[in-house]
Design a binder for these strands. Structure first.
Length: 276
DNA sequence: CTTGGGACCTGGCTGC
DNA sequence: TGCAGCCAGGTCCCAA
């Protein structure tokens, strides 16, 4: 499940390998992966274009091209990219292949077919509504505090809402809330200034640590040249229902918040009602 | 504004 | 052993 740290690793890995290279051919194994424009126009327009940069916005990967268009990818639940020599055996579930002018191929593999690609003139058409980047300098504790105060929804739901904050998904929301010792079902607007500050620090720590660890290889995620991430080994609560809390020894519990499995320590993340 | 549900998908797991 | 049915959760969309 690629979230911000996984996509950041993919971006960093691809950057020195694909920038300056040109698409010589684009083939779609499953055309449903293209959202915009038509699959035919998508392939035709990309051929001959040079990749000028690789960027990340939230969980999206952006490839600005020489034509001033932008190729946008989203890996969703089960997608990953593979950068291999063109003679290498294609992975199962390869949905699209970008042939590069250096004899390599960038392959979009996706078991569950939830992933998506766009070719657009203005990236805002795809990523324009995303909330702030949690690792940006401008994302201060005060900014988070204001966002929290504006929503009467569970804090876990707020962290996962891409239009409020971009890039945090289910796993890292649970990890950040544990690190900040905040119960996932607390209403966002009920958090104190102190808790907002702690949560801000926790979000940054959790995300930067996971980036350093190469992301979390749960399910299908791997980096473009096949390396696995190790962040999952350091998870304190995510996917650890029934295990013992490293902090207090209580059993980690699993509940459902907004339809998503949510792991937390019932002892460290106590239910509290602030000033009410 | 908030919440819940369905849709998109398929491998892996559960239970009979 | 086989198979139906549920589950995973990122995002969008619709309804209450």
């Amino acid at each position: 499940m690629p979230e911000l740290p996984e996509v950041e690793n993919i971006k960093n890995d691809l950057l020195p390998k694909v920038v300056g290279h040109r698409f010589t051919k684009v083939s779609l194994v499953w055309t449903g992966i293209v959202r915009q424009p038509s699959p035919e126009e998508f392939c035709r327009s990309l051929v001959g274009q040079t990749i000028e940069d690789v960027r990340r916005r939230g969980k999206y990967l952006l490839f600005p091209l020489s034509s001033n268009e932008v190729l946008v990818l989203h890996l969703k639940m089960s997608g990953f990219l593979s950068l291999q020599p063109n003679f290498a055996q294609p992975e199962t579930y390869t949905r699209a292949v970008f042939h590069l002018d250096n004899g390599r191929e960038l392959r979009f593999c996706d078991r569950r077919k939830l992933g998506a690609m766009w070719l657009v003139k203005d990236e805002a058409a795809v990523v324009g509504k995303l909330g702030p980047e949690p690792l940006a300098d401008s994302f201060t504790p005060e900014v988070l505090g204001k966002l929290l105060s504006q929503h009467n929804i569970p804090v876990k739901a707020l962290l996962c809402d891409q239009n409020i904050i971009a890039g945090i998904g289910n796993m890292y929301a649970d990890e950040a809330l544990f690190a900040a010792r905040i119960y996932p079902l607390r209403k966002a607007k009920d958090l104190s200034g102190e808790e907002a500050k702690n949560l801000h620090k926790a979000i940054r720590q959790v995300l930067t640590a996971a980036i350093r660890q190469g992301g979390a290889s749960v399910d299908t995620y791997k980096r473009p040249e096949g390396e696995l991430g190790s962040a999952q080994f350091y998870f304190k609560v995510a996917h650890r229902g029934g295990e013992l809390c490293h902090n207090c020894g209580a059993f980690i519990e699993r509940t459902i918040v907004r339809g998503r499995g949510t792991y937390f320590c019932p002892n460290c993340q106590k239910v509290r009602n602030e000033e009410s």
